[in-house]
Amino acid sequence: MNLLALEPERLLGAVRALLAAKGIASPAEIAERIAATDAASPAQGARMVAIAWTDPEFRALMLADGTRAAESLAIPMRGAPPLGVLENTPDLHHLVVCTLCSCYPRAVLGYPPFWYKSAAYRARAVRDPRGLIAEWGTTLPPATKIRVVDSTADYRWMVLPLRPAGTENWPADRLATLVRETDMIGVTLVATPGDHALNSFASPRPQA
């Protein structure tokens, strides 16, 4: 049977029916799974980042063991691959890609964005990282090294971005509103409040 000749919707319908009939995956189990995946979103990663910015103990835990750090915030990690956290500094910027497929820290960031799975992103990130992030308006000074993390195996990686300047007395829940999915993949920098159009160090240099 040539599966590729089938209409994908029909193939899904047949697989769904067979898995239900065999007691392998019931419609209720599938619905439950969809609900659980929908519940994961970049807001969870953003909360981790904001707490790491304000709580040195949590920051240390997050960098040592991302999975335990997420679990300490009641983010469900059971069955998820180990979470690794990459710390940006003024000298070092991380950019995450999966050149082989689309490995992504779904437990803390939700479904990967469309562009993350695209052939263009996967091809260009390891070869021209600065040109690539420039498409998001992100420029780094030449002195800041880029470390492209090709997610090839058993870990899933998220970036702990730099805390922007001008947020010194902000509580974690307010800080979390600044952090976007793109910041935690590394194609953008967390913008200084009131400066959302700019994604560069041209504005006051962010402090860790």
């Binding site: 050149t99 082989l100 562009w115 695209s118 052939a119 263009a120 992103y121 996967r122 091809a123 260009r124 990130a125 390891v126 070869r127 021209d128 690539l132 498409e135 090709d150």
Partner: peptide
């Protein structure tokens, strides 16, 4: 990774 045919493709 680095595949030639996608290098000029925008995101």
């Amino acid at each position: 990774g680095g595949a030639q045919k996608y290098l000029c493709q925008g995101i």
